[in-house]
């Protein structure tokens, strides 16, 4: 049996979803290491198969969300990060991590700005899969739910660009309801190569069935996992090169374990 894939979770001052994200990654088979960014160096990604940027408020997000974290990463990691991505390493950014990846230019150009309501929003949202080939979405049905919790989640791009992103398969997820004013209700994006993925919703918060707000929510495999588990499982398969025997393209439960 090959070694377990390894995830490095960057911890900026103010990153606060790292523990539950590590829990989710370990649940699908990763080993994980939470790395405070003060310890970040050019060699930090050497053993990593996944670079994880978890949610939170890096440096308080007092400047535009993710901006200071972007500068920190560029200062400490720049060349090795681009090397990591170029060699096919997987990078996932959730919420604040998505904001940081966008600022770093690793995802399609655009900005995540303040929600149209001007407020922080914590609620569950229905999502629509827009690119079936995106690794994290392998085991997810066309529509599914995840919670969001953000003040700056409204994705905006230069005139006409969002349409291009759809054409190129860069838009991976959209909100079914307009929750924050995003262009075309974009909720998640990936790069052209499909190994950098960012989304505002929090898959790590729906690891277990019991995370769902409705006590009658049925897990797809009638087990105790929520959609977040299946999301990370897709990434696991991608980084381990596991052959995908089954994928779930409908809302019907898949038989996974």
């Amino acid at each position: 049996m090959a070694r377990q894939p390894h995830a490095i979770l960057l911890k900026f001052p103010g990153t606060n979803c790292d523990a539950e994200t590590a829990r989710a990654l370990e649940a699908v088979g990763f080993t994980s290491e939470i790395l405070p960014t003060s310890q970040l160096g050019p060699d930090s990604l050497e053993n990593a198969d996944l670079l994880m940027l978890s949610g939170g408020f890096s440096y308080g997000d007092y400047v535009m969300a993710g901006r200071l974290a972007q500068l920190r990463v560029e200062e400490r990691l720049s060349a090795s990060l681009h090397g990591f991505v170029a060699e096919g390493g997987f990078v996932l950014g959730v919420c604040n991590g998505f904001q940081i990846l966008t600022k770093l230019g690793l995802l399609p150009a655009g900005s995540l700005i303040e929600n149209t309501s001007g407020r922080f929003i914590c609620r569950w949202t229905r999502l629509q899969v827009k690119n079936r080939d995106a690794a994290p979405l392998t085991y997810l049905p066309d529509t599914f739910e995840l919670p969001i919790a953000h003040a700056e989640g409204r994705f905006v791009a230069a005139e006409g660009m969002a349409e291009e992103y759809f054409k190129d398969g860069l838009v991976t997820l959209t909100y079914i309801d307009d929750v924050n004013g995003s262009d075309h209700q974009i909720a998640g994006l990936q790069n052209l190569e499909g190994n950098v993925f960012g989304l505002m919703p929090h898959p790590e918060r729906f690891l277990y069935r019991q995370h769902h707000y409705d006590p009658d929510w049925k897990a797809p495999a009638n087990d105790h996992w929520g959609w977040g588990y299946h999301f990370f499982r897709g990434i696991y398969d991608h980084v381990t090169g596991a052959k995908v025997f089954e994928s779930c393209t409908t809302t019907e439960p898949s038989s996974s374990g």
Binding site: E20, F120, Q210, H211
Partner: peptide, 12 residues
């Protein structure tokens, strides 16, 4: 809704 009541992933 303005409070994050789900962070830490343990709000059952």
């Amino acid at each position: 809704r303005e409070y994050d009541h789900e962070v830490q992933g343990n709000t059952l």
